[in-house]
Design a protein around this nucleic acid. Structure first.
Length: 846
RNA sequence: GCCCGCGUGGUGGAACGGUAGACACAGGGGACUUAAAAUCCCCAGGCCGAAGGGCCGUGACGGUUCGAAUCCGUCCGCGGGCACCA
């Protein structure tokens, strides 16, 4: 008999399904909700999915064994651009492409043996789902959580269409190659910025989130304390006699050398209208993409408007006003004053335009000297003020800012304000394959919400993608409707929602996936919150922040209980799956990539050519360093794929897929299978090794449990290797070995559930492992009575002693000093110091 | 450009501030076999030494500590995010 997963895995999957083991039911057990970030239906599962869902499955199966009623659902983040791109490139309809991909991916996922309640599956492009999303949108609109305003988009002037940031490459449209412009459109926004303070403060309560994610979110929200004040202008057009600016460094006011406004500032627009030179400069600024990266890495440019402003402390002191391409209209007031001595960007600007650079402060103990770069110490650092006006001469930047705000408020120059970098969430997308925004534009009534009884507002099927732009815009029968308020001819909103909206509440919908309302109060009360959420670090900011906002908005509109405003109790961010890249070059020297299965011993199988091996990188189709999970499952079984992906790296780090590692995983699982087969048949009588084995088994239970609880699956697996090695060599009797092997099956079951069932069945275990209770270690068997203490001499390990576990420190000291190596090192002298850390280590300082 | 991580043998990694390298991969040696595969056993950070043992060693350089892979600072390299990729 041999281990043949291909034959047995399917059988166990059927057995689980027959027993409805994974159906989530509300009952009197405590509940546990495990959720992995749902996939985009690209059509193929990849190893990243296998890793993500296997981790969730380990937790789900473990918690189930621990007596929890587990909810572990799966769905599809099914709206988005790739479906439209496919329709443009290959013809067909985004809907057919998407649902076809979902069917394919589901078929690829099921053989993994995940403990998913498939009865709750949905796709965000199901009208049943997005109709409920539209209902919530209307509730949020009524609650004042949604509004319209102008915002900039990437505009492709050749294709006459809006581009996503990823479609803008080096400032040009990806298809047309035209230089992209920033253009304003009226768009819908969620008022997430109203929640800035709360979303920031509540981060402290997310104790089971990675620290780095909380830091990233806190920085993204970007709370700052500063001074907002108005300059009096000289020579500005009518209506612009004051210029409001915001600064986080009011202590540097006497180092100001210019003022700058955003190209989108109202003053810039006013100047643009009357001065062709300004218009040309502003148009220049609007070239290129809208992304912060594009704006911040672009060359810093300014245009001297000829206008000036009076310094608030000295009306005779005038500063020039520039329009500058790096000032963002969205942050603060869209206008700043520049202090080149203490801001590198302002410094570079001042050098470029020949502006003065007066230092405001110098390092404590230093004298004033010309600067070759901006001096930007931490605000917590003490510095000496040369041009201070509030507070001490020597003080920290923080103290100076506080003093400066107080001074200015007292003088009537502005007021201290708390600002946030977080902007409102623009949800309008000028695209077809998304959730339609359920409003109608009426010439008489304005923006009119669709009636709830008319939801869902369904996407029309009869659309084509032969032209750029949104087909909804050119679909007269869908677009032209009667106004829900007055009945006169009106136009449906043709923008659809950002796909982040879809993924901001799917976790709540899983608690009642087919309810006639967005959520069901009883189900949400029972299943919320997600106890463990698992996904990629790339979602650390946007998806998670939007979800946190959306849960609050859903609570405000009555769709979630108050306890669910932070929907994810614990978050785990997993690393990527990587693989080596194999490359050769063609006659023209261009890189040619090869799939791993085309390579043998570093050479291309077909040609025998030596391949250059590039170190591991994220699996990507373009580099062909991909391994198809379907092939791995066919060759080795799902358990091997699951085992290897968990075993080789800590879950939060990248894991490198290697063929030899996968083969080794298969060999190990085969070995365990054979061991179980041998033990099942054994009749060996009891021996005095039985007790040793029982102790090792108890230790394995404790260590594997700790590994799973601590999200250290690689360590849990290392302990299982040790346990299997130990059990394989043990001379214990058949009864003791069967006892240990049964526990092995249970400890293996979260990771390799099919093999665990095989073993359980071989040993004649009752029922199936998937329904067995998690084993508990007998505490008495875990206690060690002696401990080996390493002895360091001056911090280097030189000897060790074995002592009773609870030996008094004074007694340990005596035994240490009596040790040969220690006595020799001391040469009769007394040690300078003797450090005894009970149970751990001894350090003798000489 | 800005924010956040990460960096340990040939490789993936382990190590409450306390014996650096558990466990595994690749490799080497051996057993079994007519042979190979499979399986089993042993070795293995680097340098020196016959050995006992010694010295060096966690990206680099400093610092704190009886003791640093771990804490702090500076630098280098790699990765993630930057609001219309999902």
């Amino acid at each position: 008999m041999t281990y043949t997963p291909a034959a047995t895995e399917r059988r166990w999957q059927d057995a689980w399904e027959r027993a409805r083991v994974f159906a989530a039911v509300r009952d009197d057990r405590p509940k546990y909700y495990v959720l992995e970030m749902f996939p985009y239906p690209s059509g193929r599962i990849h190893m990243g999915h296998v890793r993500n869902y296997t981790m969730g499955d380990v937790i789900a199966r473990y918690k189930s064994a621990c007596g929890f009623s587990v909810l572990h659902p799966m769905g599809w983040d099914a709206f988005g651009m790739p479906a439209e791109n496919a329709a443009m490139e290959r013809g067909g309809h985004p809907k057919d492409w998407t649902y076809g991909n979902i069917a394919d991916m589901r078929a690829q996922m099921k053989p993994l043996g995940l403990s998913i309640d498939w009865s709750r599956e949905f796709a965000t492009c199901d009208p049943e789902y997005y109709g409920q999303q539209q209902a919530m949108f209307l509730d949020m609109l009524a609650a004042g959580l949604v509004y319209r305003k102008a915002a900039v988009v990437n505009w492709d002037p050749v294709d006459m269409t809006v581009l996503a940031n990823e479609q803008v490459i080096d400032g040009r449209g990806w298809r047309s190659g035209a230089v992209v412009e920033r253009r304003e459109l009226t768009q819908w926004f969620f008022r997430i910025s109203d929640y800035s303070a709360e979303l920031l403060a509540a981060l402290d309560g997310l104790r089971h989130w990675p620290e780095k994610v909380r830091i990233m979110q806190a920085n993204w929200i970007g709370k700052s304390r500063g001074l907002q004040f108005a300059f009096e202008t000289v020579g500005a057009p009518g209506g612009f006699d004051r210029l409001e600016v915001y600064t986080t460094r009011p202590d540097t006011l006497l180092g100001a050398s210019f003022a700058a406004i955003s190209p989108d500032h109202p003053l810039a627009k006013a100047l643009e209208a009357q001065d062709p030179a300004v218009a040309a400069f502003v148009a220049e600024c609007r070239r290129g993409g809208t992304s912060a990266e594009a704006i911040e890495t672009a060359e810093k440019k300014g245009y001297d408007t000829g206008i000036s402003v009076r310094h608030p402390f000295d009306a005779a002191w005038q500063l020039p006003v520039y329009i500058a391409n790096f000032i963002l209209m969205d942050y603060g007031t869209g206008a700043i004053f520049g202090c080149p001595a203490h801001d590198q960007r302002d410094f570079d600007f001042a050098i470029k335009y020949g502006l003065p650079i007066p230092p405001v402060f110098v390092p404590e103990g230093a004298d004033e000297a010309p600067l070759s770069e901006a001096y930007v110490p931490m605000k917590s650092e003490r510095v000496r003020y040369l041009r201070g006006f509030a507070g001490e001469t020597v003080q920290t930047g923080d103290a100076a800012v506080t003093a400066a705000i107080a001074f200015c408020e007292d003088k009537g120059v502005g007021r201290g304000v708390t600002n946030y970098r977080l902007r409102d969430w623009g949800l309008s997308r000028q695209r077809y394959w998304g959730c339609p925004i359920p409003v109608v534009h009426c010439a008489d009534c304005g923006v009119v919400p669709e009636r709830k009884e008319n939801l869902p507002v369904r996407l029309p099927d009869d659309v084509t993608f032969d032209k750029p732009g949104n087909p909804l815009d050119r679909h007269p029968t869908w677009r032209d409707v009667a106004c829900p308020a007055c009945g006169r001819p009106a136009r449906r909103e043709t923008d659809t929602m950002d796909t982040f909206v879809d993924s901001s509440w799917y976790y709540a919908r899983f608690t009642a996936p087919h309810a006639a309302t967005p959520t069901n109060a009883d189900d949400a009360a029972y299943w919320m919150n997600v106890d463990q959420y698992i996904g990629g670090i790339e979602h650390a900011i946007l998806h998670l922040l939007y979800s946190r906002f959306f849960a609050r908005a859903m609570h405000k509109t009555g769709h979630l209980p108050a306890k669910a405003i932070e929907p994810f109790n614990a978050l785990f961010t997993q690393g990527m799956v990587t693989h080596e890249i194999y490359m050769t070059r063609d006659g023209a020297g261009r890189a040619v990539y090869h799939l791993p299965e085309e390579i043998e011993a570093g050479r291309v199988k077909a040609t025998g050519e030596a391949a250059e091996i590039i170190p591991s990188a994220k699996m990507s189709k373009s580099k062909k360093n991909v391994v198809d999970p379907v092939n791995i499952i066919q060759s080795f079984g799902a358990d091997t794929a699951r085992w290897f992906i968990l075993s080789d790296s800590p879950p939060e780090r990248d894991v490198e897929w290697t063929a030899s590692g996968a083969e080794a995983a298969f060999r190990f699982l085969s070995r365990v299978w054979r061991l179980a087969d041998e033990i099942a048949a054994s009749t060996a009588p009891a021996t005095d090794e039985d007790a040793v084995l029982d102790r090792a088994t108890a230790k394995a239970i404790a260590e594997v449990t700790a590994g799973i609880e601590g999200f250290a699956f690689n360590k849990a697996i290392a302990k299982l290797y040790e346990f299997a090695n130990m059990l394989g060599r043990s001379g214990a009797g058949a009864v003791a070995r069967r006892r240990s092997m049964a526990i092995m099956a249970q400890l293996l079951s979260p990771m390799v559930p099919h093999l665990a069932e095989d073993i359980w069945a071989m040993l004649g275990g009752a029922g199936i492992v998937a329904q067995a209770a998690w084993p508990k270690a007998d505490p008495a068997l875990l206690v060690e009575d002696t401990v080996t203490l390493p002895i360091q001499i001056n911090g280097k390990r030189r000897a060790e002693i074995t002592v009773p576990k609870d030996l008094a420190v004074s007694e340990v000291e005596m035994r240490v000093l009596a040790d040969d190596a220690v006595a020799k090192a001391l040469g009769g002298a007394a040690p300078k110091k003797l450090v005894v850390v009970p149970g751990r280590i001894v350090n003798v300082v000489i």
